[in-house]
Nucleic acid binder design. Structure first.
Length: 315
DNA sequence: AACGGGACCAACCGCCGGGTC
DNA sequence: CGACCCGGCGGTTGGTCCCGT
């Protein structure tokens, strides 16, 4: 039937986003009531971008609950663990890592973890030990094993690896995965249903002991990467579905003519996991200075108390 | 100092599935 | 039920940075 392009590409800007564009997008998303589709966002925000580009920019970079910087060791372990179970389903993996995007995880996988695993003699695709360093082999054998190219056909037989090497691989792998090496082959085991997966990193230990563990509804901007509260796929909200607001606040906002309120500082930004005093919910964000402060705050990488203080002035 | 190659990552592309009409 | 729209996803690209020579 010939699908229409997501947007009219003519005259639209591509490539890296400028600070001004970021500002426009953030301003719009903050002051808009969120009841518009991404396709309309660039028009309404005064951007020469396609909606898709806006969405991507927001989800991968501007979202306030994003963590910055390299993945921690624990996060890496989780990624490896989940990848072994889910394969390249980056959004699913990201949904178990609060503050991380699928793109970020995908990139990190391709640039860091893949290499790490290979170095350890683990096949990043199958999570099985790679075949021992290729001893010169008769040509016909090699040929036979690659013909057909099914994943199964490519898998090395576990028995083939050298005993000592296997032991070393297993040790390192278990270090990385935080568990014992797979005594199963991922291709032999049916893909797990997401519901069946238990990820330690999603369990209470993630919550700092000093903070209240009350299940406060964390602001959810994300598509797939901020369902940390429950690790439940169903908990995912569409990107423009703004944080839940209680009835009183709704009334208050309605009374003030406020379309949208900013969530408290996302916990994922905080190095110690503890929130600074939450802002009053009735904050209004149509102030240009606020937007500048907000941009500064959200772009400051790890939680930046100074940026937060600046932002707090507006609350 | 200049250059080349590799690493890294933001952004793009194209396909897919769900929802709606 | 099919056409279409929209958002989401995963793979890929391309620009920038860094490091070694």
């Amino acid at each position: 039937m010939g699908r229409q392009p997501c947007c009219d590409k003519v005259g639209l800007k591509k490539g890296p986003w400028t600070a001004e564009e970021d500002q426009k997008l953030i301003s719009f998303l903050l002051v808009s009531n969120g009841h518009c589709c991404w396709r309309a966002v660039p028009k309404l925000a005064g951007l020469l971008r396609c909606g898709k580009s806006c969405r991507l920019r927001w989800t991968n970079y501007l979202r306030p609950d994003l963590k910055r910087g390299l993945l921690s060791e624990a996060e890496e372990n989780t990624v490896v663990e989940l990848h072994a179970q889910l394969g390249n389903r980056w959004s699913k993996i990201a949904s178990h890592l609060p503050g991380r995007t699928d793109n970020e995880i995908k990139n990190h996988w391709n640039t860091h973890i893949k290499k790490k695993l290979k170095k350890m003699g683990i096949d990043p695709l199958t999570h099985k030990p790679l075949p021992a360093p290729p001893p010169p082999r008769p040509q016909h054998e090699e040929h036979q094993s690659t013909v057909g190219e099914s994943p199964e056909a490519q898998l090395p037989a576990t028995e083939q690896k050298q005993p000592e090497m296997a032991e070393r691989q297993d040790e390192e792998y278990s270090l990385l995965r935080g568990s014992s090496p797979p005594d199963f082959c991922t291709d032999e085991v049916p893909m797990m249903h997401p519901d069946e997966i238990i990820v330690p990193s999603c369990e209470p230990p993630a919550q700092p002991p000093t903070c209240t563990a009350a299940p406060t509804p964390t602001p959810s901007y994300s598509t797939s990467s901020s369902s940390s509260a429950s690790c439940d796929d169903d908990a995912l909200l569409p990107i423009l579905e703004w944080p839940d607001v209680d009835v009183d606040t709704m009334c208050l906002m309605a009374g003030l003519g406020v379309d949208y309120m900013i969530p408290a500082a996302p916990s994922s930004l905080l190095s110690d996991g503890c929130l600074p005093p939450p802002p009053p919910p009735e904050a209004v964000y149509e102030d240009h200075m606020f937007n500048s402060a907000y941009v500064e705050y959200q772009s400051s990488g790890a939680f930046d108390q100074e940026a937060w203080n600046k932002l707090e002035l507006f609350y």
